[in-house]
Design a binder for these strands. Structure first.
Lengths: 220, 220
DNA sequence: CACTTGCCTAAGCGCTTGCTCACCCGCAGG
DNA sequence: CCTGCGGGTGAGCAAGCGCTTAGGCAAGTG
């Protein structure tokens, strides 16, 4: 019952980071940044969590900011991939929107530590890194807006303000990273299902048109 | 056109803070915390923005954390007051919910600097101050949940999961503080109207039941 | 064996941080 | 005039910060 330590869901996804010491440092940084924020986290803290001396960090990363950049980029790429998989899947616009919201929310809840860093520590990045990440965000926005536009064109949705509604839908999903595991005892799957339903209502889709639809895991 | 510097809407609300120097410091702190975050803001920066020497801050506030606490408490109290005014107003549940969301969102957009600090710098508070603020938050949650429960009882709303939907509604409103004036050219009134409509859809209210409803200003 | 290479540490440098302290100034009361 | 007092400053302290440097140690290669 309840959310497991996330470690199970968090240790495999960073498999692309090597060598092993660099990955351990990155995981330690994700935890520290998520708990206390980037600026309140010291390099000594990160190294300590990874079981290393402070200097070890600088063998694998040039600066503390580079660590945040790596986390932010990888995290955004994964979240975007999850979104696009659903967006490019088959089915009606309602089905695709429900699928997108369900998996996007599931990712944010299941990886809420990573998601929190990715979504809320953006301002701590340097200017160039920041603009790079903002570009990735715009792609997420475009993916959602496209589905909603499709639904409007097909007559499935009733949406007076498409950009505004797109913004609200994404905002709703992203904010999951802030409150998840701070507020309650829901599983990522439950939150994903609830939010998919709420979003279908927001766009005025016919009730029950894309209701159930399980789906595999949280994905990497 | 567009959002004025917020200064107009921000300088009067802090009228309850005295003496004048203490208020200037507090306003400077709100700006700095909102722009860069609590931990990235230095006491020298705050004092500088207020046109004072670094030491002047400690005449009016014991610590930097006390400044954040003051901002957080006053901000939460104001936001809660705005919410309750709408919640305790007359009318159907749909009307009250729309009113609550509209004014709550309008406050978050109109005072987005204060709101950002209030909503996103909570973890920077010390333990006791933090729990005090969390208690205020629960009251906001209760206010919204009560309206939704009323609507369900009256048969106005169709809400399978009341706690979950309450959480989502508040989450949606709060996140306005994150993206407002970073994303676009909407006025607080426009965002409030859009969000009130979206929330009515989320709870399955009859369309057009609490549609227009202007309302005065953003309130203090 | 000697020598290189990759990973890691102990020590610490230069700087900034939150905060303090001794002192100063304008002004009201006597 | 002097005195006291609330509000202000300049200088600076102790601590902690991000990051560097010199060196150690185990494994791989001739």
């Amino acid at each position: 019952m309840g959310a497991a330590k996330e470690t199970l869901g968090e240790e495999q996804p960073w498999a692309e980071v090597s060598p092993d010491a660099a990955r351990r440092l990155l995981i330690a940084a994700v935890e520290a940044f998520a708990e206390r924020g980037y600026h309140a986290t010291t390099t000594r803290d990160i190294a300590g969590r990874a079981g290393m001396s402070p200097a070890a960090l600088y063998i694998h990363y040039k600066t503390k900011e580079e660590l945040l950049h790596r986390i932010s980029r990888l995290g955004h790429e994964k979240a975007l991939a999850v979104l696009r998989t659903a967006a490019d899947g088959g089915g009606t616009a309602a089905e695709r929107l429900a699928d997108a919201v369900r998996s996007f929310v599931r990712w944010h809840a299941g990886h809420h530590m990573t998601a929190r860093v990715v979504q809320y520590e953006l301002d701590a990045l340097g200017p160039e890194h920041r603009t790079e990440i903002v570009a990735l965000r715009r792609k997420s926005d475009a993916a959602v807006r496209e589905i909603i536009n499709d639904g409007v064109r097909a007559g499935e949705f009733d949406v007076p303000d498409v950009p505004g509604t797109t913004l609200a839908v994404l905002s709703l999903c992203i904010d999951v990273a802030r409150w998840f595991n701070t507020a309650g005892h829901r599983t990522p799957d439950e939150v994903g299902a609830l939010y998919a339903d709420l979003v279908l209502r927001m766009v005025g889709a016919e009730p029950g048109v894309a209701g159930a639809g399980a789906g595999a895991g949280v994905a990497g």
